[in-house]
């Protein structure tokens, strides 16, 4: 056997870990909506796309520096999430959950088309954001934006943990997820919990959208990134925040390991399909996922 190119594997695994954390972050925002309202948001990928386009627009059209454009995008996305919930999803409260899921499929198509209409069909690169495009991490060349991405991801994960453990709104969200009527009997406003979950979800997803946009330039391919979040959350358990992060990291690592395997196997594009093989296998042998909860049964 010739040189196994272990340094390349190392670099792949490091990238896989970072991309996986991003999947985890998008997965968390997906799980957030699912937990609060039992809605499977098929338009999650479009949240990435919209976020990336908005940030791109701020940077290109208004020539804003990244450190202003980025937080500004988050604010816009938060407002977008609230407006989306209030205008489109609130009137659907009480309708069968499958109708709401169909509506999110509709939203996904509308957003795709809207973005193409507004920003055109050709991929647009981000301007140069960092002084040096790559940095050296323990011997591997990693893109600077990935370093930013992992820092932001860790902040988001930590923020989620704090939010759900200690903040009043976080507790109210968990209560709503567990027993909507009981939460209402305690004075929790389910409407604001739902609005908040969509707002946070849209905001957090856009972070991933921007990072991927900086790496690969913005195009409608971005929403495919959102689709890869499905295997991640199914693997982790659809209703587990921690599961989403762990599932995301596993999918990210596997996907990049597939690139390495592909190098020798020569199947081509193995990276794109591996997550979905994992999805099928998980659904067959462990449909609740790694961390998905079943109800506590006391007899």
């Amino acid at each position: 056997m010739e040189n196994l190119r272990l340094d390349f594997l190392y670099q792949l695994m490091l990238t896989g870990l970072i991309i996986g954390t991003l999947y985890g972050v998008v997965g968390m925002s997906f799980v957030l909506i699912y937990k609060a309202s039992k809605v499977i948001n098929m338009a999650q990928g479009e949240f990435l796309l919209i976020g990336a386009w908005i940030c791109w627009y701020f940077l290109i059209e208004y020539q804003l520096p990244f450190w202003i454009g980025f937080p500004l995008t988050l604010i816009v996305m938060m407002v977008f999430g609230i407006v989306l919930q209030v205008v489109v999803l609130r009137p659907l409260i009480g309708e069968p959950i499958i109708s709401v899921i169909m509506v999110t499929i509709g939203l996904s198509i509308v957003f795709q088309a809207l973005m193409k209409w507004l920003f055109g069909v050709s991929p647009q690169p981000y301007p140069q954001i960092f002084a040096s495009p790559t940095v050296d991490v323990l011997g591997a060349q990693i893109r600077t934006v990935y370093v930013l991405s992992i820092v932001v991801s860790l902040v988001i994960v930590g923020g989620f943990a704090w939010f759900f453990k200690f903040s009043k709104m976080g507790l109210a969200m968990r209560a709503t997820a567990f027993d909507q009527q009981a939460a209402q009997s305690l004075g929790v406003s389910v409407k604001s919990v739902f609005a908040m979950s969509w707002a946070i979800s849209a905001m957090v997803s856009s972070v991933a959208g921007i990072v991927v946009g900086v790496v690969n330039s913005v195009s409608s391919d971005l929403s495919f990134f959102g689709i890869k979040v499905f295997p991640a959350v199914i693997l982790g358990g659809l209703d587990s925040i921690i599961g989403a992060v762990v599932g995301g990291i596993i999918i990210g690592l596997l996907e990049h390991f597939a690139v390495y395997v592909d190098l020798y196997a020569g199947i081509g594009n193995l990276q794109q399909i591996v997550p979905f093989y994992v999805l099928v296998i998980i659904l067959m042998i462990k449909p609740y996922g790694l961390f998905g909860t079943r109800d506590i049964e006391r007899v």
């Binding site: 507790l171 968990r174 209560a175 567990f178 027993d179 009981a182 109800d295």
Partner: peptide
């Protein structure tokens, strides 16, 4: 109707 996947303390805060 207590929230079963929270601790007693969290239920009280709720």
């Amino acid at each position: 109707r207590i929230i079963q996947d929270m601790t007693a303390h969290e239920n009280l805060r709720l």
